[in-house]
Amino acid sequence: MHTNTAKDFSFTLLDGTLFKFSNQDVLVVNTASQCGFARQFNALQELHDRYHAQGFTVLGVSSQSFRKQEFDQPCEIAAAIKNKCNRVTFPITQLAAVRGKSIHPFYAWAATQVSLLGRPKWNFHKYLIGKDGRCITWFSSVTDPLAPNVIDAVEAALANQ
C-alpha cells in the first residue's frame, strides 16, 4: 500500500485510545523517559502549551529503539514521565519502534520523506508534520524544542492555513 501523508497512520496512546493526524500541526518526538534528553519534556510541554489553542500538538512516541531507555508498560511510562515533568498534557503513545524490523509504519513513511540525515539516530528526534499530513521538516535530538528554528518552523506551519 502506498501512503502519501501522515494521515494514513495512527498511534495507540498510553490510555489505549488512538491518535490520528487530523487538521493540526504536530511535532512528533520519539521519547524515552530514562534518556539524558528526557529533560526536554518540560520544553515540549511549554511548546505544546504555547501553540495548542492555535491547532498544534506535540506527540510523544515512547520508544525503546535506542538502548531500551523506556519502560515496557504504559503505567510505568506515564509514571516515569511524570517524574521528569510534573505536568504533561500532550499525548504520549505506547511503545513504538522508530527503526529496525518492527518499525512503526509512520516512521517507515517518515524515513522516505527526509534524507538519511533526517532519520532518528537517538531519542528525542523531532518531525514537524503539517495540517495536510506532510512532513515539513525535522530536528535532531540535540535541538531544544524551544530553539528559535523550531519556534519559527511551528509558527510558519500554523500560519499556513
Rank of each mutant, 00 (worst) to 15 (best):
Y107A: 07
G100C: 14
S102P: 03
A97L: 12
Y107V: 11
D72T: 12
C75H: 03
I92W: 06
Y107F: 14
R87H: 09
P91Q: 10
V98G: 15
C85I: 01
I81R: 05
R67S: 09
A96G: 12
P91R: 08
G60R: 12
F71K: 00
L95P: 04
E70W: 03
Y107I: 14
G100Q: 15
I81V: 13
E70I: 04
F71E: 00
V61S: 02
T93W: 07
K84D: 02
L95G: 07
Q73T: 02
C75I: 01
N83D: 13
Q69V: 12
H104S: 15
Q64S: 11
P74V: 03
Q69G: 00
F106V: 15
Q64T: 12
P105R: 10
K68F: 00
A78L: 10
S102V: 15
Q64R: 15
Q64F: 00
G60C: 09
E76G: 00
Q64G: 06
L59A: 08
I103H: 02
C85P: 06
Q64W: 05
E70H: 01
V98N: 12
E70V: 05
C75G: 04
W109V: 14
T89H: 14
F71C: 08
S63P: 01
F66R: 02
V61L: 06
L59N: 05
S65K: 01
H104P: 14
I81E: 03
A97G: 08
A79E: 11
R67C: 01
V98P: 08
A78W: 02
A108D: 14
D72H: 04
R87Q: 10
T93Y: 06
N86C: 07
Q69S: 02
R67Y: 07
Q94M: 15
N86K: 10
Q64I: 06
S63E: 01
R87G: 01
S65N: 07
S65V: 00
L95I: 11
Q73D: 05
A108H: 12
K101R: 11
Q94S: 11
G60E: 08
A108I: 14
Q73S: 06
F66Q: 00
E76K: 02
L95R: 12
A97R: 15
P74D: 06
L59W: 07
F71L: 07
Q94A: 15
R99I: 11
K82C: 02
A108W: 10
F66G: 09
V88R: 00
P105T: 11
P91V: 10
C75N: 02
K84Q: 09
F66L: 03
P74L: 04
G100E: 13
H104D: 15
V98K: 10
T93G: 06
A96K: 11
T93R: 08
P74K: 02
A80G: 09
E76S: 05
L59P: 10
F66A: 05
